[in-house]
Design a protein around this nucleic acid. Sequence first.
RNA 1: GGGCCCGUGGCUUAGCAUGGAUAGAGCGACGGCCUUCUAAGCCGUAGAUCGCGGGUUCAAAUCCCGCCGGGUCCGCCA
Length: 548
Amino acid sequence: MFLKFRQQVIEALKEYGDEKFLRESDHADLSSTIAFKISKEKNQKPQEVAESILENLELKEYIGSVEALNGYINFFASYEFLEDTINSIIDLDENYGSLSIKGNVLIEHTSANPDGPLHIGHIRNSIIGDTLARIFRKAGYNVTTHYYVNDMGRQMAITVLGVERFGVDSSLKIDHAVAKAYIQMNKFLDENPDFDKEVGKLMIEYEQGDEEVVKRFREVVNMALKGIRETLTKLNVRHDEYVWESEFIRNGYVDRILNELDSKNLIRKDGAWILEIDDFEKEIVLKRENGTTVYITRDVAYHVWKSERFEESINVLGADHKLYGMQLKKLLEILSAKLPKIVFFEFVSLPEGSMSTRRGKFISADELIDKLYREAYKIIEGREIDEEEKKRIAKAVAIAALRYDFVKIAPEKPMTFDWKKALGLENTANYIQYSHARACSILRNAVSQGMPDLEFIGEICSDIERKLVMLLSKFSYYVLRVVKELRPNVFADYIMNVAITFNEFYRTHPVLKAESDYRMHRLAIVDATRIVLRNGLELLGIEALEKM
RNA sequence: GGGCCCGUGGCUUAGCAUGGAUAGAGCGACGGCCUUCUAAGCCGUAGAUCGCGGGUUCAAAUCCCGCCGGGUCCGCCA
């Protein structure tokens, strides 16, 4: 709805309606700074320019009033806008906030090596990727999500050998058991450098598609994947497909792109196959001297494959892959394939330094989820709710806290993990869930008292109610911002603001005890807020609990 | 050494793209609020040289240059 208001403001401003000068502000529902710009060109005072623009404005139905103040042109929404906002939220219900942008988009995220469990760095990727996928769907896109399984690397050969040599510890969750074998095998390799030959041999055999070896890889990769998938499910993260990189060797795409590059005379073959392009600072190896391909070769093939099937694609990658991302795009450009948009996020590190699966230095997502669950359970332990319900709530609260803590931080900010902060449950996500539960509670009580019709009345809105309704109107505006900016944190922030403003309303505006018109009016606001919070939490992959 | 990213109250952080009206929020601290729709809540108070220095501008957290601190990349690794 806010987008409609915004559109009307742009139209009203006519030749001055450049979006670049529109600002959200505390002083107005929308304001334009265009007068500052023009005053410079015309050598007039901003306020005078603003006033003269004001005189020629053509107001639309959703613009209630306009003022020129300190050089700003301030727009205020009309009662009609407020009423249409509340009515459309209640009418559209779970569809409120949707947009109708069309397009097929592929979102690839997480894609952690199947050599152990997901750790808290991986899940930053998962949470950003999954939230983007949800928001893109809300925006109208046809979204497919992929987990790209790196089954071909050196680390996988080591993992396979590790599992075979040391077995899997059945007392552990399967992916943790795989990591244990992987760590042991790395240690073994450090102590027995000769054994490295075996690793190389296995890699070659796997790439050549040796049936027996493929079976061995599949078994181990699937073990890790099974555990990883369980973790992702707990996090409410689902991938439509798991795409194995070896697939692109087997289906001919790797050969295809190598031939294409070769036919352009871009490959120097001196043992290894090396890409020759002048404008790049580093040479890129595409095939090792032993004939096996490297990661980027298969990944380029995968992206060419993507490019043939999807209109757009988005990758979520750690910031350590920035140079890699440029190399990948460069190659795709040469091959005339569509380029992915890449969302980079900075590292999650531990106070003592960065994480490493190989060295066994990481905090697993499972461990964090487990500890959060126990914290959440402690809070409701003593309450009179049945046991199953308690567990369900504790689980939802734990995942909410976890997802929100990650999604709220702008991707480009580095994070340092801190147990004490991570386990604090009396803030952020739970506050939003709590606000939603509160709204539900009011509505439940209203129903039990015989619910009247809901009827929002623009004229009787208090300042706080008005502020809340304006905020509710901005849902799709923020959906659109995330789609354009690929920064899901701005949506997380928006939902938090709705919750904060709702609580401000809750405190100062009795609903059930209010008199006739006010009661209906406020119940409509509560219901609309409930819908916005619920739809918003859904986009964040957080369960909107009705009771807490 | 070169590239990229980050640096905003004690802590975490929004705002930076597109310069503009008092730098917004949460945690923590301190003081208060449960005979009133869920206290996982609410109210109040204290707390900021927006890393440092220059520049552009009527106006800079925001743009430009230099520097400092932290991270990261620069593999026939993935």
